[in-house]
Design a protein around this nucleic acid. Sequence first.
DNA 1: GGTATCTTTGACAGCACTGTCAAAGATGGA
DNA 2: TCCATCTTTGACAGTGCTGTCAAAGATACC
Lengths: 176, 176
Amino acid sequence: MAGVRQFDEDAVFARTLLTFAERGYRGTSMPDLAAATGVQRGSLYHAYGGKEQLFLRAFERHTQSFLDSAAGALETGGLTGFFEFCVDTICPRGCLSTRSAVDADGAEVGETVRRFLVALEDVVLAGLGTSREVARVVVTTTRGLAVLQRLGHSPGELKAIAATQTALIEGARLSD
Amino acid sequence: MAGVRQFDEDAVFARTLLTFAERGYRGTSMPDLAAATGVQRGSLYHAYGGKEQLFLRAFERHTQSFLDSAAGALETGGLTGFFEFCVDTICPRGCLSTRSAVDADGAEVGETVRRFLVALEDVVLAGLGTSREVARVVVTTTRGLAVLQRLGHSPGELKAIAATQTALIEGARLSD
DNA sequence: GGTATCTTTGACAGCACTGTCAAAGATGGA
DNA sequence: TCCATCTTTGACAGTGCTGTCAAAGATACC
């Protein structure tokens, strides 16, 4: 072992994800990532191989912490808390997973995002105790909110939509 | 008036929209459009100015017919019919408006898609007779379905999600 | 038929990104 | 200290897209 990596990999991953969230998957180039991370383009190619591999490594890295936080929000604040957490996460910059899902060209990125959504569905299912069908509607709603965010809707508007959805679900629960 | 346009503008618009739906806004280049429409790139630049203008003209052109069809589906089949229509429209190729919303770089495209969603919300509101809040949830759900479609979900899966959402809304209606 | 007007076509320069590579730099171990 | 190994850096060729333009083609009107 010698000639050792000069950059902090976690910091690179964090900057990488921010860049992808802001600019979209296709809209982000290796020069963009080099500029955002402060690491030369050649070094990124050398260390990770290319854009897709770098994305995948960064995405998988931070996925688990998001799921943990989501589970926490769900436990603390119920469905309302969950949606608020999602909107607050999405809101200044854009939803990384949604943008990547829509934007991706390679199959690998789509597959990874799909797995992420299944995991998110599991979190909702476990934390909310509804049916899997309803959990899936909840996840679908978060995707819809992410699209609306891209169109310029404010956090307040998104939360209002989430509140309506929450009321529909909670209402159905009561009437069972 | 002389030296007259050699191509059928409606056909060009139709092919244009298909291409944008399949490849995404950023993923579609002028050479792609030239190939898809059979019109030389130079002619497209001459006639429309560029990609964004061509997109906008084609999008606005076909927007109204979609809204009309959606209203018809809603009248005929209620919320279930509406969602089925949306899924069937989205499904083989992808949802043009959602892809464009997420993908767009220019402000004009986003603004146009936003207006389209407001119009769609109005259609749902008028056809369904619920509150505007619920109509907005319905529109948001269609966006979520479009994202899932991009991830490879089948029409059947999307319709199942839509059915759950429909049940939640209809249930809330009954208990009022 | 002639002319003015519009369209089509192919070509051009400019720009940005990709992926690779060789040379140079840095580091840990013998 | 010296060496083997890894990383960094800048440069390179290749590719694709953009926007423009001049020349050529087509058409309506006089």
